[in-house]
Simulated assay, not measured.
Amino acid sequence: MERLLNLIKNKYLITFLSFVVWMLFFDRNDVATQYSYQKQKANLQEEKDFYVSENAKIEATLKNIRYNAEEVQRIAREKYKMKKDNEDIYIVVEAPKVEEEN
């Protein structure tokens, strides 16, 4: 009992505990804020990785277009529905899947 009383009266322990509580809950950079920052950082990193890979794909496509005439024709036919004078174009669209209800 006396030991517990001495611990409570210890100004260094009280100061240390006050500091820990302040840093964990009340400070501008508390634990919850740091957690949300880390979560946001992870989301931004995923987004960055996505855009880097998309950029690499686009650069590869541009390089392929510059040096390959067949690639230019393929893109013109697929994306812009262009055709030669003696050709017909048929566009095939998949029907949406219908779910059965029991």
Rank of each mutant, 00 (worst) to 15 (best):
V21T: 09
D49E: 06
I65K: 00
E78C: 01
L24N: 15
I91W: 03
Y67S: 14
N10Q: 02
D85F: 08
I14P: 02
Q73T: 15
R28T: 13
A60P: 00
L5R: 14
L13I: 15
L44V: 01
L5G: 12
N10C: 04
E47Q: 01
D88E: 14
N55F: 09
N102F: 09
E70R: 05
N64M: 07
E78N: 13
D88Y: 06
E101K: 12
E2H: 03
I14W: 07
I91E: 11
E2W: 04
D85P: 00
A56K: 14
Y80Q: 02
A95V: 14
M1D: 10
I65T: 09
A32V: 09
N6R: 12
V93Y: 09
K11D: 13
E87P: 01
K83A: 05
S36V: 03
F25D: 01
D27A: 13
E87I: 08
E54L: 05
V20G: 01
L17A: 05
M23I: 09
A56C: 03
N64S: 10
K9P: 10
N68S: 10
K84Q: 10
V98S: 04
A76K: 13
A42D: 02
L5V: 13
N68H: 07
V20K: 10
V72N: 06
D27F: 04
V52Y: 01
Q45S: 14
E2N: 05
D27G: 06
I91Y: 04
L13K: 08
D85L: 07
V31L: 15
I75R: 08
K39D: 01
I75Y: 02
D27S: 13
P96L: 03
M82G: 00
V31I: 09
F19W: 11
N86G: 01
N55E: 09
Q38Y: 03
K97D: 11
V31W: 05
E46G: 02
Y67V: 06
Y35C: 00
Q45T: 11
E46N: 02
N102E: 14
E47F: 07
L24C: 11
N6W: 08
Y12Q: 14
K81A: 11
T15Y: 09
Y90F: 11
D27I: 07
I65H: 01
N29F: 15
V52E: 06
K9H: 12
L24S: 12
Q45V: 05
Y12P: 06
E94Q: 10
E94M: 07
Y37H: 04
I91D: 10
R74D: 11
A32G: 06
D27V: 02
V52P: 01
R28M: 05
V21S: 10
N6P: 03
A56R: 08
E2I: 13
K81S: 10
I14Y: 09
E78A: 11
K84V: 02
Q73D: 11
T33W: 00
E78K: 14
I89A: 03
K63Y: 02
D85C: 04
D27Q: 13
M23T: 10
I89Q: 08
R74N: 12
D88Q: 07
V31K: 08
K9W: 07
